[in-house]
Write a protein that binds this DNA or RNA. Sequence first.
DNA 1: CGTCTATTTGAGCCCCGTCAAAGGCGGTGG
DNA 2: CCACCGCCTTTGACGGGGCTCAAATAGACG
Lengths: 255, 255
Amino acid sequence: MRNASFVSPMINPLSLNLEQYVRLSPEDRDALDELRTSRLIEARARTDLVREGDRPDVVRLMVSGWACRYKDLPDGRRQIVGLFIPGEFCDLNVYILQRMDHSIGAITKVQYYAMGPEVVQRLTQNRPRVGQALLWHELVTTSVQREWLLNLGQRSAIERVAHLLIEMFYRLRATGHTRGHTFDLPLTQNDLADATGITAVHVNRTLQELRRDNLIAFERKQLTILDLDRMMKLAIFNPNYLHLDQEGRHLDANA
Amino acid sequence: MRNASFVSPMINPLSLNLEQYVRLSPEDRDALDELRTSRLIEARARTDLVREGDRPDVVRLMVSGWACRYKDLPDGRRQIVGLFIPGEFCDLNVYILQRMDHSIGAITKVQYYAMGPEVVQRLTQNRPRVGQALLWHELVTTSVQREWLLNLGQRSAIERVAHLLIEMFYRLRATGHTRGHTFDLPLTQNDLADATGITAVHVNRTLQELRRDNLIAFERKQLTILDLDRMMKLAIFNPNYLHLDQEGRHLDANA
DNA sequence: CGTCTATTTGAGCCCCGTCAAAGGCGGTGG
DNA sequence: CCACCGCCTTTGACGGGGCTCAAATAGACG
């Protein structure tokens, strides 16, 4: 929570998110603050922000609520390929492509800034360190996708679910969205199923097993990780892929 | 195979690859040709080019042979999260990160150019259109990762294997590495297993089923797709995610 | 021609999917 | 504020797709 007082409350999540990677200068933060002049859009839970096949137009910066990136098959099968929490960009670069190859859906009610690509381009040109941070953000997102591939391809059902829960804990904690080992997890068991590639019924049994073993508590969309060590061992969780811990220190404003 | 005569035989695969997205000018091609002054490195089959945890140093451009990106777990489970064919970069951007979050291994004997990040940076600065093409290349690689997530999370064993085979057919055909519906597939059944998240034994049975249904022929590392239509239907394959078909036309040299 | 790796086959079984139905909970409208 | 409705969670029984273990066969390579 470095220098939280320097940034406006609304855009706060973004600079907090980026400062995981790079320490920003006051000028950098001011430039980020100007994104607040973008259109602020609200979408209801369970609606799509963009659909596969659409022509991408704007870049979206999540302000509140959870969203997901997903792909589906004609017969209804659906795979969530990424989750977005406040402060994260959904689609920094995909506007380069002609057509969306995936959809973005709101899990909860969401608020986001929608800005033209030129706004981001101007920002990265004027503030190179912000540009570096955004690139970092993209690279980490891609790294997370790779870890999810490992998750789906190699881990068992209980390992997958545990791994996802720990990842979200780490990501939320990095931006101050946790209280101790507790955080809001607005996903339904159906969502968890679509993200882990197992069925909702089996997600249910898996969560019960995690509860029975006193590894988690989960009620009213509040998740508590009761024993992080044992959970990490169970999930074979190694946080390296999140590239946290101020790895971007060498890019710092005062370096 | 546009203008293949304009480019040197050695670097050919790269510009061919990039021209899937953007039509390059002669100057662009010349600039790409200069990458040939980079160190050309050879590695034996089944060796690692980089390992998870290493500090990334160089950018690798595949010249010949196949390589893969993979992640593994302490207990030996291994997931291949991407395949590289000649003309593709393994790790255009990952040098930005402090530590590799995955490994890169040679499937066959491989040759690749190893260049310092500054070489790529200079190239993209001097030749913006090449920079665009490289960005495109990265975005498509990421899109492929998302499709693989869908593959692992939602498709059955036979669908997964069929999907992977068709994808490699499309990617190889785009750079002229196919003869009719036949191409070299140097993967072992173990590799296919690690890429699709099923066991090698079951890959074997799956391939037999594909053969029995006269969908493929596969011997001596030569794969033929006997009935592409039925294969695509079986795999629920939609090539959109590869963003082929000169989507980058609007960035063309003469646009 | 021998060795090592890759492919193939078989038997048994288990993790997880499927189908179906019963509770629980939150949200909405009267 | 209550009652209803829809979605979410939970439970049970059953079946099957894919895993495991093990061993035989076939190729590849020196």
